[in-house]
Design a protein around this nucleic acid. Structure first.
Lengths: 142, 142
DNA sequence: CTACAAATTCAAGTCGACTTGAGGTCAAGA
DNA sequence: TCTTGACCTCAAGTCGACTTGAATTTGTAG
């Protein structure tokens, strides 16, 4: 079984060693042991870090990611909480889609000021409406 | 023409007065004048703030939002940069969709540890691949 | 006219996620 | 055995986006 030291992990994942230590300190990952002072990680660390990267790229805090996928990739949350997270994601996806459409419109619309374009204002109104809907965790992603 | 003072704006948008001042200080918005010390805003401020809220909910920094839609809702960027922003959004949407699917799977899969589930690992690998694609602004959103 | 509530400015504080720096340790190679 | 250099710990610093607090400054109600 091949063990990786922190620099190998850093190199293979593109994550800084200091960040990896930080994740361990916060309990998102664990090292399998030490050689002298040096941490040793099992190969599964790579997938775990991929998961952490994905989760935080999606806008979740480290604590939230920790809750979704525990230190060994096992979810620490109930089915319901997970579904709620997925719903949060769907709302966020909707917001992003609106913004993307808005930006596309901005790039193409010839109106001198976009606030004067009825289409733009309509899209904007539509988007703001989303903000006032319930969010299960109470935490909007951005 | 009806002018709004900061507390009315705060109340109608749900944004704290301190945040509104902060946006003005950073140049994302401008007040139309003062009554004594007190700022007065035109009604268009509401849409502008909606735009700022949307943009930052989508993960853009205030500086980026400022670049996308200037102080009066006019975009300060070239068509190309806007299209690039839209592409960034599409990538982010893809990431979020993957994470949502992953979470759904986690909520439903009976495997003892998800890292042992081939479907999970496959989805994860698929997601990580996304991270290595080019991003036009150099800045991933989350 | 006076008091008061609401705004104002400016500096400093907070929070999350790391990064940086100083000083220490130890496995491995010469 | 001695020397490196990679890694270690712990404290402090950074960055963005605000918030908070203290010391003013009004417009307005009484």
């Amino acid at each position: 079984m091949k063990l990786l030291d922190i620099s190998e992990v850093a190199q293979q994942t593109g994550i800084a060693a200091s960040a990896i230590r930080h994740y361990e300190e916060k309990g998102l990952i664990t090292s399998v042991g030490r050689r002298g002072l040096k941490r040793l990680f099992g190969p599964e660390i790579l997938d775990q870090l991929a998961l952490i990267t994905l989760g935080s790229a999606a806008g979740f805090s480290l604590d939230e990611v920790k809750g979704m996928f525990g230190p060994d990739g096992r979810p620490a949350l109930s089915r319901q909480v997970l579904f709620d997270k997925a719903d949060d994601l769907d709302r966020q996806i909707e917001r992003l889609s609106h913004l993307r459409d808005l930006i596309h419109h901005v790039a193409e619309c010839p109106a001198p000021s976009h606030m004067e374009c009825p289409k733009f204002r309509k899209m904007l109104r539509l988007s703001s409406r989303l903000r006032n809907e319930k969010g299960s965790t109470g935490k909007a992603i951005g």
